[in-house]
Amino acid sequence: MIKTERLTKRYESLTAVDHVSFEARPGEVLGFLGPNGAGKTTTMRMIAGFIAPTGGTASICGHDIEREPLAAKAKLGYLPEGAPSYGEMSVRGFLEFIADLRDLTGAARRIRLEQVTERLGLGSVAAQTIDTLSKGFRRRVGIAQAILHDPPVLILDEPTDGLDPNQKHEVRALINEMAAEKTIVVSTHILEEVEAVCTRAIIIARGRIVADDTPQGLAARSRYHNAVSLRLGRPEQLAAARAALVALPQVESVETDAQGLRLTALPRAGAALLADVNAITARDGFALQALELESGRLDEVFRSITT
């Protein structure tokens, strides 16, 4: 598990990370969200023992990162931002080097190297130098390096950045696979990723934690939570439908999308709209192409919290 207490990093003129405290337990996939420059990477670097905090503490599986750095790092797999590696090395040579540093020996070493190479699809490029690989492969080499010693704690800084949709799907599947017994922290600014892999999300802005909740909990903070959207088949019915929605007592307001075919009715606090909307469409004979109950829009929550 990971635990930070009032973790703080100050540079001369700015406080990059300001009293960040959280705990992550095995089985949790914690999404670390925030705009660029919010302090995500600095926080992760401190937990990984790369930079020293100016205040507060961080520990991995009970080992304080400053007092017992080697014990803490041994429990951690870390993918730094941008997945750096040694470009002139071959993929196999690089992973062997990491295996040496991780003190993997004998059969266990061979099996782990095989498993990781296989799981990340690196077999076909094992003999190539890392410099010659595509961005997606390099990112996968970085992930392979992080999970090679099968660590109980994983910190992945933007693991899917620069990957194509198929590769993103692969990496997310891998994270989900490992989630059961590991503590995983994933930093990202891709919100769909939070819904795809995270059991919990922390939003950080200007160095502070501004939200700490499940993805569903965060979505529920959206004004679109429990809103009902409908797409009309016949544009000429738009005005009538809009008027009918506005007339509903439970409706706070109605929004029309840019194309003008989709109406979204936002509920008053705590109200449920779906049955009522259903009733008026049947009553007035609106031709519906789609009717959707929204769970909330993370991007809207993200924007409202971080700006």
Binding site: G49, F50, P84, S85, Q145
Partner: peptide, 14 residues
């Protein structure tokens, strides 16, 4: 420059 220093120093080495 390449950032590999971060990779190296987050391995269990001093």
């Amino acid at each position: 420059k390449s950032g590999s220093v971060e990779l190296l120093l987050t391995q269990p080495v001093t």
